[in-house]
Computed example of a mutant assay.
Amino acid sequence: MDNQSIVSLVIYSLLACCGIMVIVWFWAHKIKNAGVVDIFWSYNFPVIAIILLLFAPGFETRKLLICSMVIIAGFRLGTHLAVRITKHLNEEEGRYQQLRNEWAPNAEKKFFFFFQFQAISNVLLAIPFFIITLNTAKQLSPFEYAGAALWLISVLGEAIADAQLAAFKKNPDNKGKICDTGLWGYSRHPNYFFEWLMWLSYFAFALASPYGYLAIISPAIILYLLLKVTGIPATEAQSLRSKGEAFKLYQQKTSVFIPWFKRS
């Protein structure tokens, strides 16, 4: 692994992501809605992918494949979040309202550092992409084909889950109700499951490259965050506050994470 190349690529990526998040923080501060950070957290991965595509020294076909995967997935998720969040820019999402209350009276200052941490997490989670795009081997491996296939399944699964939830919320008859149709009838968080599966696909793809085993860091971090920190705990806490007993009943009927397991 070329240490000089990877250090330069990490620095470029950090500067780009942190710079973007500074601009996003100013916008969030102006509109009093920290939820916009989610949009640009997703968009930062395509930014990193473009940097790697342009400057990483790896095999061009491999770079084009993995960077295309990252750009497509990041742009899809970021745009989905942008459509959802910009519909109620004047109404901050519940979990960010909770943080704002907990961090008062220094909420804006703490949100600045929170946004910068999100940028750093972009680069940390991009470890598989750095490893893959430094690989100069001229032939693709079965690991890379398997990773690409798993990525396709995960992106389609997440897109389906997002579309099902969006369609449910769009129906005025469902106002105040809990989405329990489609994949949401089996898992309370099928979108999170497929998001994690996508990161697992990047690990599988990276196994064909030198030091590829280090890429396990990314799906491990994502799984921890989803299960223990900012994903499922925050989302379910907000659902319990807003939906109460109805959500407790939904919890009893569905799996927390894996969408093909349904409780009897």
Rank of each mutant, 00 (worst) to 15 (best):
F247W: 13
G157C: 06
I153Y: 02
V24K: 03
S13L: 12
N101T: 10
I66A: 09
Y145E: 01
L226F: 14
L52S: 09
S201Y: 14
A82I: 09
S264H: 12
T79N: 04
K253P: 08
A107L: 11
Y250P: 10
Y213F: 14
L156Q: 06
F75R: 05
S121C: 12
K243H: 12
A246F: 01
L240V: 03
L197Y: 04
V37K: 01
A167P: 06
N122Q: 10
L214F: 14
Q97A: 09
L207I: 08
L226E: 02
S13T: 12
L214E: 06
F130N: 07
I258K: 09
S141D: 09
R263Q: 00
N135A: 11
S42L: 05
Q238L: 15
E144M: 09
I160N: 03
L99S: 03
V155R: 02
Y250F: 14
F55I: 05
Q238M: 15
L152I: 13
W199G: 00
V22W: 13
E91I: 15
I11S: 07
F117R: 10
F115L: 04
Y192A: 03
A159D: 10
L99R: 03
A34R: 03
T235G: 04
A206R: 14
E195R: 01
V70A: 13
A166M: 10
P105N: 13
A206L: 13
S154N: 09
L77I: 04
R241Y: 06
M21I: 08
A49M: 05
E158P: 13
Y250C: 05
D162W: 00
P128D: 03
F261W: 15
L81P: 05
V10T: 12
K138E: 12
L9F: 02
Y224P: 09
W27F: 14
L183A: 03
S68F: 12
L81R: 01
I120P: 00
F55P: 02
I72Y: 08
A204K: 12
W184G: 03
A34N: 02
I216F: 14
R84V: 09
I127L: 15
N90M: 13
G182R: 13
K110H: 10
F112L: 14
Q98K: 15
E245P: 10
I66G: 01
H29T: 04
P190H: 07
V22P: 09
D180I: 06
F55Y: 12
Y145N: 02
G244M: 08
D173H: 14
I216E: 04
G157D: 09
G157W: 02
A16F: 08
E158V: 05
P210H: 12
G147E: 00
Y145A: 05
